[in-house]
Design a protein around this nucleic acid. Structure first.
Lengths: 338, 338
DNA sequence: AGTTCCAATTGCAGCGCTGCAAAGGACTAT
DNA sequence: ATAGTCCTTTGCAGCGCTGCAATTGGAACT
C-alpha cells in the first residue's frame, strides 16, 4: 500500500496540492474553511509529509550535526543533552558524530563530503584538528566551534574563558593555604589548546599570589581520562617532594587522581587537595565530592545553536565571532573537606 | 555558484547521466575506460552526490535512529559508542534521540510520524513504554528493541539474560558469606520490567542457596541514578537491622549507595558489600572499584544492527526473535575488598 | 455598473537522483 | 556476410514536495 501524498489529500479535499502544502506548512493566507477541509482530509487519510521530498525541494535537511570526540565522556554527554533540546525547539533534528579525537576523521567531517547534504550546519568540538586544519574546511558549511579555540574569523566559536576559570581554580587552592600545587593535563601545541589555556591560568594564579611555579609539577597527559589522572598522580606521589594540591584539567582526571591518592592511604583534601574542571555529575556523588569549575553548559548550547541558525539563514558571509559562556567555581569536599 | 550535479559530470565525460550514476554507485557493468573518464570528470569538477536527491529517488534515508532514555547515563553512552561504528560499517548514519524515559515521547517516536522518513529503522531502549504501547507502533517501522522486554512477535529484541545475570550477582554475595542481602531498584509493573527481572534473579539466588528473602529489604526506586541509590541506602542504614550486602540494579545506583555508606563511616565491603549492574567505566575507577554484571555491549550493538538491517531489507514480514548477548560477573573491591 | 485592488488559490517546472526497460554496439557463430 | 547473443549504455519518467509567478474571484471603490 502506497504512502498517501499531498496529491491524494488535495484530491479528497477538492483543492490543489499547492494549497495543501500551504496548510501543512502554516504558510500564507488560507481561509479557515479551506484549512478545515484540508485538515479533515489529512486526518482521514493519515497523511504525513515526506520529509525526504521536502528536503530535496528546499535544499535543506532540517538536521544539524554535533561532532564530539567521545560520547561516553560525561562532559560531552551532558553538553549534548543541552544541545539537543535547544535545537529541537527551533525545528532541527540533531545528528551526532563521534570522532575519537582523530584528526583525520574530524578533517573529513568538516571537509567537502557527500554527507554535507545531510545537515544544514555543524557544531564541532574538535580535538585533533589544528587551527590550520580548521581553516581548510568546506567553505560553505555553517560551522560553530566549541571549546578552546580562537576563530580565524570565518566561523564562530563558543566557549568559556578558560584562562580566567583556571586562574580561579588555582587561586582557590592557594586561598585554602596550599603552596606546592601541581597541574595535571598539559598538552603540547598545536592541538592541545584547551590544555595550554589551563596551564596559562595555572601560571597566572601563581603570579597573582606572588608564588613561584615549579615547572616540574606541570604534568602532561595524552588525554583527559581517569587513567591519565591516576597515572599522573602516581608519578607525583612517588616524588620526594610531593605537592599538597593538584589542579586537574578535567573532572575525570581529578577522579583518577583522587583514586590513586586514596589508594595510597592519603587523605583528600587533608594531605592533598584536588580540584577538577567540567562539573560532571560524577563529581557530585564521588567520595569525596570533587571541587570543580562549572561551565554553563546550557548557555554554551544555546549560544551555539542560536549562532548556527543565524549562519544557516545568512546568505552573505558573516564574520566569525567569539562567544563567551559563563562559568563558576564550585568548591566541594576535595578542597574544603567534610 | 551552483553545486555540480550528475548531469554536469556526464556532460564533461561525454556519457549519459545514468552512466555516471552507475559509476558513482559501483553498479552494473561499466567498462574500465568509461569508468576512468567519469572518474576523471568527477575529480575535475569536485562532484559529490546529493544524498537528499538520492534519498527521494530510492525512498531510503540511509539513516537509522537509536533512541535511549538518557544520553548522559554512562551505560547508554557506552552502548551508543558501540552501535555507531557497527552501523557506520554497513553504510548507515546514526541519528540519536533522547526521551527522558517519557512514555509519550517514546510513543511518538515509534508511532506514525513525519520523522519516519528520516530513518530506515529504529533501535530503541524504551523506559516508559509498556508492552502494550510497543505493540501499537507504526507497523511498517523496522524496529529492534533493547533491554528487558519480551517481543510480541512483530519486532526483535536484544538483551542479556537478566534473571540469570541477577542470580549470579546475588549468588556472588552469598558466596562471600553475606546473609542479609538487600536489593535496590525494584520498580512496579507495567514499565519496570528490567527491574522486575532483576528482582526475580534476586529471589532465585536466595532460593538456590536455601535462604529466605526478607521482603522489606527490596527497595523500590523511581530511576536508576546515583541519587536513588544514595537515598535508598540511607533508608536501609537507618534500620535497626541493616543488611550486610546490597545488590544494586545499576552501577550508578551502586555508586550512590556506596557514597552514602562511606559517608556514614562504614567500610565497603567489610561492613556492607555492594554489587552493581552495567559495568560502566566509572566503576573501574571509583573508590572502591565496583563489582558488577558486565553485559557484552559490543555484542548487543552488533546483534541489534545486524538484525535491524535484515528487517530493513526484508519485504515479507519477518517474525520477531529474541536475541541474547553474553554477560559476565566481574567481582571488584566493593565485594572482594582490597 | 464598471473599474481597481487585493487576498486566496493554482499551475508549472524542477530539486538531483535512480528504476526500469529498451537501444545500441561489439562480438561470435554460422 | 548475416543473424544471433550478450553486455554496456541510454532515455524516460517520476520520487513528493516547494518556489515562483500567474490566475481567479470577490470586495471596495468611483
Amino acid at each position: 500500500m502506497r504512502e498517501t501524498t499531498l496529491r491524494d489529500v488535495a484530491e479528497l479535499a477538492g483543492v490543489s496540492p499547492r494549497t495543501v502544502s500551504n496548510v501543512v506548512n502554516g504558510y500564507a493566507k488560507v481561509t479557515d474553511s479551506t484549512r478545515a477541509k484540508v485538515e479533515a482530509a489529512i486526518a482521514e487519510l493519515g497523511y504525513r509529509p515526506n520529509v525526504l521530498a521536502r528536503n530535496l525541494a528546499t535544499g535543506r535537511s532540517g538536521q544539524i550535526v554535533v561532532v564530539v570526540p567521545y560520547l561516553d565522556t560525561p562532559y560531552f554527554a551532558e553538553l549534548l543533552q543541552a544541545i539537543i533540546p535547544a535545537a529541537r525547539k527551533v525545528g532541527y533534528n540533531v545528528l551526532i558524530d563521534q570522532t575519537d579525537g582523530d584528526r583525520q576523521h574530524e578533517g573529513e567531517l568538516i571537509g567537502r563530503g557527500s554527507r554535507r547534504f545531510l545537515f544544514d550546519g555543524m557544531i564541532i568540538s574538535p580535538l585533533g584538528l589544528s587551527q590550520n586544519d580548521l581553516s581548510q574546511r568546506d567553505p560553505d558549511l555553517p560551522l560553530v566551534v566549541l571549546g578552546e579555540r580562537v576563530s580565524d574569523g570565518t566561523f564562530d566559536h563558543v566557549g568559556i574563558d578558560d584562562v580566567a576559570a583556571s586562574t580561579e581554580a588555582v587561586s582557590h587552592l592557594i586561598a585554602i593555604g596550599r603552596r606546592r600545587i601541581a597541574a595535571i593535563g598539559d598538552q603540547p601545541y598545536p592541538t592541545g589548546e584547551a590544555a595550554q589555556l589551563r596551564t596559562r591560568g595555572f601560571r597566572a594564579a601563581h603570579e597573582a599570589a606572588g608564588l613561584p611555579v615549579d615547572e616540574s609539577l606541570i604534568i602532561g597527559t595524552a588525554r583527559f581520562n581517569r587513567i591519565d589522572g591516576a597515572t599522573a598522580m602516581a608519578a607525583l606521589l612517588d616524588r620526594a617532594d610531593p605537592p599538597d594540591a593538584v589542579f586537574c584539567y578535567s573532572d575525570l582526571v581529578a577522579s583518577g587522581a583522587i583514586h590513586t591518592a586514596l589508594g595510597r592511604g592519603l587523605r583528600v583534601p587533608e594531605d592533598i587537595a584536588v580540584i577538577g574542571y567540567d562539573d560532571i555529575e560524577d563529581g557530585r556523588y564521588s567520595q569525596p565530592t570533587i571541587s570543580t569549575i562549572s561551565p554553563d553548559k546550557k548557555a554554551i548550547a544555546q549560544l551555539a545553536v542560536d549562532r548556527l541558525l543565524l549562519r544557516i539563514a545568512g546568505h552573505a558571509p558573516i564574520p566569525g565571532v567569539e562567544l563567551r559562556a559563563p562559568h563558576e567555581l564550585i568548591p566541594r569536599q576535595s578542597t574544603l573537606g567534610y
